[in-house]
Design a protein around this nucleic acid. Structure first.
Lengths: 339, 339
DNA sequence: CTGAAAGCGCTTACAG
DNA sequence: CTGAAAGCGCTTACAG
């Protein structure tokens, strides 16, 4: 039994309707829109006029289905409120938008389970490629990625197993900052960590390596809280650290938010920074330059990570393997006044 | 002449292939996935097993085309780096994600032209609804919105012309903060504005209304810079203001970023805040509570705007008109130490 | 330069 | 509970 056409909103003008109104075939209208050079000028103008006047808008779903492409890239990020990933996103957007790709943002909320779930559900869009944060996907997630063989680039870290990635060494950056603290004479250097995501843990490894190499004691100087980072948490954790280790002479905070809160709390407690206590952060977010004293931190190339990762993905989608699977964008120590 | 099938990636298993492998029709596979209750249990399990084993992922493009829906919402925001809109986005995501909608984010970069261009191009997705920032769309943009008659909710402001919106009165909020400065004895209150977008201009109107109502002079106290807001610009603009008006006793910054920069610069110049100079911001972003002195500002319900706007849009899409077209979420004066 | 036919991968009604 | 047919709105080859 033939199917009855469903009612459509009046505004959903179709190609066929434009064709009928112009007295040509649908395919000619399609060409006038997509490959105008192939249509006689007079006809093309009549068609474009009808398109404009009827308010025709092509249906991308239908077009892409017919063309067997999606022009879509999936971006898996752990947070929508962490400036770090917003900056990366801005870089991605700046490359992929002009290239005609639609970005699908999936917020994993720092959960590997949610990452897997979101990957599976967004595969339904048949993305042309995937941008994923970090390297620590669950085995299931990696299996899906492998199975579908989609071009994939990892963000914000470096892999040595051939996976494509654009970032910098979180461990080396953590190490560099800790080395600076050691070199400036600090001896009891605490590490303040929240969220405890992959990147934070690697920075902590860098801190540990630096202290160990310098022959410094690390026992009782590592402070972890699994809660999300915030300035309030940084303030609270500074209290905890000073309660437990009043002899502590430096705090390496795993990010700037914690550090800004710690700095404010030190001020409230009348603690001289950096005289009696050094405080350092990580990322060099905008406020870091405007605290009192100005925050010593590590500048990370967030937007460039987005730009370069998007470019690499575009190459991969085009079938052109990049020169190297892994691009190291480095980091920069920002030695200001707090440490 | 019949068309030759194009080669497909091996991973792109189709419904028909799953059907063939299971020995049933495609529609039964479709039902096993979408309305499992309508399929006999034993059969359903065989099908789901094949789906799993073959790694079948439905093609959303095809599904939505056939179902004549898009399950997509377009969100037009002026910036991807301004925390204000990121917070709004987080609220939108929290409602629309669980409701099965895909969010399409279009970044207008504070440009009405780009807004129009992005609206037109994203209409190709046939979104079920639109969330748009502010009320000041270009006439062309409004014409497209009207013509397509899509459910639309405006974010972060209040309209009195029947348009759907969720926000608060930018003017009243600006007025309330300026009233506070007046009430606390300030007499030469400057307004520092950057970006000069719709919301900033309305806050300025509130500032003007408050000063005028109090009989205070406003001549030469309005300082505008069209550049994007930043802490560095806030510092630079404070210099400009104090050069032009050394007698100024308060600065109302149109947002917290400017205010934080201004506060830092005042500290560098040895200016007593709030003793000699009051400095206030707008939005109550996280760092505002951690500056020295802590920043007086206006807390805005950004995430709630996203939540409520998304809920209203869902109602509109479902054909249920909301109780009122316009939801006022209010604002809150945060009187801290800087003003 | 233009078009008739087939197909992209799915779902909607209807029938049985 | 299951299926044959038609259709969603477009584009891809081919022919002329």
């Amino acid at each position: 039994m033939p199917r009855k056409p469903r009612p459509r909103p009046a505004t959903h003008v179709t190609l066929a309707e434009v064709a009928q109104a112009t007295g040509v075939s649908a395919i000619t209208v399609s060409r006038a829109l997509n490959t105008p050079a192939l249509v006689a000028e007079a006809l093309r103008e009549r068609i474009l006029q009808a398109v404009e006047q009827m308010g025709y808008v092509p249906n991308r779903q239908a077009r892409l289905l017919a063309a067997a492409r999606s022009q879509t890239v999936l971006v898996l990020i752990p947070s929508l409120t962490n400036t770090v990933f917003i900056d990366v996103l801005a870089g991605i957007d700046a490359v992929l938008g002009p290239a005609g790709y639609q970005i699908l943002i999936a917020n994993t909320h720092y959960s590997a389970d949610e990452e897997l779930r979101l990957l599976r559900s967004h595969l339904e869009f048949k993305p042309d490629g995937i941008l994923v944060s970090g390297l620590a996907q669950s085995p299931d997630c990696r299996a899906w990625l492998d199975r579908h063989g989609l071009p994939t680039v990892h963000l914000m870290d470096l892999a040595d197993d051939g996976r494509h990635c654009v970032g910098f060494s979180q461990l080396a950056a953590g190490r560099a900052l800790a080395d600076h603290l050691v070199a400036s004479g600090r001896r009891r250097i605490a590490f303040m960590a929240a969220q405890l995501d992959e990147r934070t843990l690697k920075r902590a490894d860098g801190w540990l390596a630096a202290l160990t190499a310098a022959g410094l004691d690390v026992a009782g100087l590592r402070f972890d809280d699994p809660a999300p980072s915030s300035m309030a948490l940084g303030a609270a954790m500074l209290d905890r650290i000073l309660d437990a280790r009043p002899d502590c002479d430096a705090v390496f905070c795993c990010n700037d938010d914690l550090a800004i809160g710690a700095l404010a709390r030190a001020r409230q407690r009348g603690i001289d920074v950096p005289g009696r206590l050094a405080i350092a952060g990580f990322n060099d977010l905008q406020p870091a330059a405007w605290t009192a004293p100005a925050l010593t931190t590590v500048a990370t190339p967030r937007e460039r990570v987005g730009l370069e990762a998007a470019r690499m993905l575009l190459d991969l989608i085009a079938g052109q393997p990049p020169a190297a699977p892994c691009v190291d964008l480095g980091f920069e120590l920002k030695l200001r006044d707090s440490a």
